[in-house]
Nucleic acid binder design. Structure first.
Lengths: 261, 261
DNA sequence: TCTTGTCGTGTTATCATACAACCCTGATTT
DNA sequence: AAATCAGGGTTGTATGATAACACGACAAGA
C-alpha cells in the first residue's frame, strides 16, 4: 500500500518560512499598505538566509498580490483588495470553526447552483452526472475513487449552470472542506451511509433532469443536511462548539503523525 | 487633469513570464498531473534565463499548489484539485462573458448573504453599514470614495453573517467584477443613478435591521437587477429565480464594443 | 532664482558558480 | 540473495558580481 502522505509535509523550504513570516507581519498590521519592506539584503541578514531565498519568498508574495516591487526602489505592501488570488492558508483551516463556516459557504453555493443547473443543463451535463453516480456505485464508500466521483458529480452539476466560475469556486471550496474534514479526522464509514448518500444524489439528479429548480435545490439542501450529520456537524455538537478556537496549533502535529502512521 | 494610466505595468519580471509559460503548459494539458518537469537547469537553458529565475517561478507555482518538488528528485505537476489558491487571470477577465458570469456568481452570493445577515447581524454590523451608506451620500457617484463605500457596505453585510469566508469570497468576486467593468469601460454616471442606488441600499439595510431575511434577499435582488441594468447588462437574472428554462446565452458583444470606444 | 544635466548611492533584477542535502540506480560485498 | 556503498543527477542554499533603475545632491548655465 502506498502511504498517502498528503500535503502535510509542507514547507521545509526556507522561502516558505520567510514568506509566511512577512505575510504574518502584513496580516497582523505591523506592515500597513504602502509601507516599504526592508531591503532584500536586510531581510536576508535578519532571517539568517541568503538573499536568494528572500527573493523566492518575495516572488511568491508578489504573485499573491500582497506586495509589489519595482527595480531600483524597493518592495511595498499592496492594498488588501489588490489580492489577485483567493487563498485559505493551511493554519486557519485547522480551526474548528473553519469547518463549519466553509461548509455553510459550500451549502450556499450548492443550493443555488442546483437550482440554476436544473434550468440550464444540457444532455452532456446529465450524462456526466450519471457517469459520476455510476462511479460512486462501484466504489467502496469513502475510498479515493468514491470521493473523486462524489466531487465529480457536484462539479458536473456546477458546470451544468454553463457558468465556468461556478465550478471553479465550488471545487475550490469543496476541496477546502475536504481538507478540513481530514484535519478533524472524524470520518466513520458504513454501508448504510453509502446507500443514503447515493439516494440523495439520485434525487438531485432526478430533479435536475426534470428541470425542476425548486426540487433540485430542495434535494440539494437535504443532501447537505445529510452530509453535515454524517461528518458530525449539525445538531451533534461534536465539532460545532469549539471551546477556544485560538489554541489549536497542536492539531497540526497530530495530523502529521496520523499521516505518517 | 490627471491622466489615468492604468496598471499596465505588467510583470516585466522574467520569473513571471516563466511561471506563466509553465502554468499554460499545465492548463493546456501538455503537462499532466504526475508528470515530471524538466530539470531547473534544462528549463533555464530552454528559456534562456538563469537558474535563479526558474527557481523563483517554481517557488511561485509551488505556493499556488500547481506543482510540488522534492529535493534530489525533481518537480512534478500536482493534481488540479490541490490548488491552494483560486485565481482568475487577467486575460479571461477581458472576455465579455466573464463579466456576465462573474456578476451572476456575485449575485448568487449576495442574495444568500443578505438573508443570512438579516438573521445574524449585530449592532456593530448595522453601524458599519450605516457608516458606509453615509460615506456614499457625501461622495460623488462613481468616485473612488463612492466605490470604496459601496464595497464597504456589501462587505459589512457579508461580515454580518459572522462567517469570515463570506466576506472574503464576496470581496474577491466583487473586485473581479469591478475590474471587469473597468476593462469594459462602460460606466456612465448621473445623479439619478446615485439616488436610485442609495435607495436600493437603504432598503437592504432596513430589511436587515428588521431581521427580515426574505425582505433582505428581495431587496438585494432588486439592487442587483438595478446594478446590472446600470452597467448595461440585460435582465437582472442573477437571483435564484430562474425564469426561462431554455436558451440562455448569447451575451453581449456590446460590452466589449463599448470598451473599444 | 530657476532649470537642467550629471553623478553617486542605494535598491532591485539577473547572472554565474559553488557546495550541501538528498534520491535513485547499479555494482560490490557479505 | 540481501545488504552496503559509491556515483551521478537533482533540488536547496549560499555567495559574489553585474546590469537596470530610482532618487537625491550638486554644479553649471540661463
Amino acid at each position: 500500500m502506498t502511504l498517502k502522505l498528503d500535503k502535510v509535509n509542507r514547507g521545509p523550504h526556507l522561502s516558505t518560512l520567510v514568506a509566511s513570516s512577512i505575510s504574518r507581519e502584513i496580516a497582523q498590521g505591523r506592515l500597513k499598505p504602502g509601507d516599504q519592506l526592508p531591503t532584500e539584503q536586510a531581510l536576508a541578514t535578519t532571517f539568517g538566509v541568503s538573499r536568494n531565498v528572500v527573493r523566492e519568498a518575495i516572488a511568491r508574495l508578489r504573485s499573491e498580490g500582497r506586495i509589489w516591487s519595482q527595480q531600483g526602489r524597493g518592495a511595498f505592501v499592496a492594498d488588501a483588495t489588490n489580492a489577485t488570488v483567493l487563498t485559505i492558508d493551511y493554519e486557519t483551516l485547522q480551526r474548528a470553526d473553519s469547518f463549519r463556516n466553509l461548509f455553510e459557504l459550500r451549502g450556499m453555493l450548492e443550493v443555488q447552483i442546483a437550482a440554476l443547473a436544473a434550468t440550464r443543463r444540457s444532455d452532456a451535463d446529465i450524462a456526466a452526472m450519471e457517469q459520476a453516480l455510476d462511479g460512486m456505485r462501484t466504489a467502496p464508500y469513502g475510498s479515493v475513487a468514491w470521493l473523486k466521483n462524489d466531487l465529480g458529480f457536484h462539479r458536473a452539476v456546477a458546470e451544468a449552470t454553463q457558468n465556468p466560475y461556478m465550478g471553479q469556486f465550488l471545487v475550490f471550496v469543496s476541496e477546502r472542506v475536504r481538507e478540513s474534514i481530514l484535519a478533524a479526522g472524524n470520518q466513520q464509514k458504513s454501508d448504510d451511509m453509502a446507500r443514503t448518500t447515493l439516494g440523495e444524489h439520485e434525487r438531485i439528479l432526478a430533479a435536475i433532469k426534470a428541470g425542476d429548480a425548486k426540487g433540485a435545490s430542495a434535494a440539494m439542501t437535504r443532501h447537505l443536511a445529510g452530509a453535515a450529520s454524517r461528518v458530525g456537524l449539525p445538531g451533534g455538537e461534536a465539532s460545532a462548539k469549539p471551546a477556544s478556537p485560538a489554541r489549536h496549533s497542536r492539531l497540526r502535529k497530530a495530523v502529521r503523525g496520523q499521516a505518517a502512521g
